[in-house]
């Protein structure tokens, strides 16, 4: 011990012992057996369901899904039936939002247009998650030359802007439907998911439970599938939700440019494009599909934000 002067005890520093009644001892490290068990996903769900951002966006998305699956529940008017005598007429009975220049019902086209947007968004996102997820997981987990090859390959596609790539590729395609549009968007969209997955896998891979699984005798691929991928999915889910919104916007852009879905398919992008000509005189024809598109894209972005808050491992420690 250093030679500190052992001065007499000074006021305020006398030996003080708190009475035991006021400071009860807890058992060291006892388990709370009363609390209900919660998995990570249950925990995230509990966090989510109280967030207004999540509630609002998921309600809109739910409504959107119902509309695109069963449009006939909301309107019985044929969106393709054109009555030129009613061109650009205002709201009438059974036609609450009026008519387009072609004399088709705006409300019916709004309802039926949801399916095109949603299906393109969902298919493109599914493709992107599968391709990007597999490539990213392999690159991140195995590293080395495989990582180098896969990452550079992804960079080639990453370098092409989504829309520019979409325009070029769509012009070369003969068949244009929801699936080909989704495929085109996926071809240029997967590198983003691959990057996120790779980073997430790299982070999870360094955890000790991965080493523990290896020293149990588990093969590399099994370690990847059982322990790494489930824990690396969080950020991918967030990005996938947000990119679903951007894919819907991209589809509308392509359709607007008349190289997305064919005019025979009812879609918001196509309707916006055709309503341009009458924008000055009859803006509502353009307004309704635009609102549909904005609300849809916005709600996916909001859902992505809410999911990020719930799934972010940093947020969980709070």
């Amino acid at each position: 011990m250093p030679d500190r002067p052992t001065a007499a005890v000074r006021p305020g520093q006398e030996h003080h012992v708190a009475p035991l009644e006021e400071t009860p001892l807890a058992a060291v490290d006892a388990v709370d057996e009363q609390a209900p068990p919660t998995s990570l996903w249950a925990d995230a769900w509990r966090r989510l369901r109280r967030r207004p951002l999540f509630l609002v966006s998921s309600l809109i998305i739910l409504l959107l899904l119902v509309v695109s699956l069963f449009p006939s529940l909301f309107t019985s008017v044929d969106p393709r039936f054109a009555d030129l005598t009613r061109s650009l007429q205002g709201p009438a009975e059974g036609h609450p939002l009026g008519f387009t220049q072609q004399g088709t019902d705006v409300y019916s086209r709004l309802v039926h247009g949801a399916r095109a947007s949603v299906s393109v968004g969902v298919i493109a996102t599914a493709l992107v998650v599968v391709i990007g997820g597999v490539v990213g997981a392999l690159a991140g987990f195995f590293g080395g030359w495989l990582d180098a090859v896969l990452s550079r390959f992804a960079d080639i596609f990453f370098a092409v802007p989504l829309l520019l790539g979409g325009i070029i590729l769509m012009q070369m395609l003969d068949t244009r439907n929801s699936f080909t549009v989704a495929l085109t968007l996926a071809v240029f969209g997967w590198p983003q998911v691959a990057r996120i997955m790779r980073g997430s896998v790299l982070q999870v891979r360094s955890n000790e439970y991965v080493t523990a699984a290896t020293s149990l005798g588990l093969g590399k691929l099994k370690v990847l599938l059982r322990h790494v991928v489930p824990n690396a999915l969080g950020p991918v889910i967030v990005v996938a939700t947000i990119s679903l919104g951007t894919f819907i916007a991209a589809e509308a852009t392509l359709s607007f440019l008349n190289i997305g879905l064919p005019p025979s398919t009812v879609s918001w992008g196509g309707d916006i494009s055709r309503a341009q000509t009458t924008l000055r005189t009859d803006p509502w024809v353009l307004l309704w599909p635009s609102i549909g598109l904005s609300v849809t894209v916005l709600s996916f972005l909001m859902l992505g934000d809410a999911l990020r808050d719930a799934l972010d491992p940093k947020g969980r420690t709070r």
Partner: peptide, 24 residues
């Protein structure tokens, strides 16, 4: 080596990183 794994097991330092959070 698989047999060897059975006979030698590790315990790691970081209690927060050594259990898979998605496994009960």
């Amino acid at each position: 080596r698989f047999d060897f794994r059975r006979r030698v097991q590790p315990i790691f330092q970081n209690p927060y990183g050594s259990l898979d959070p998605s496994f009960s």
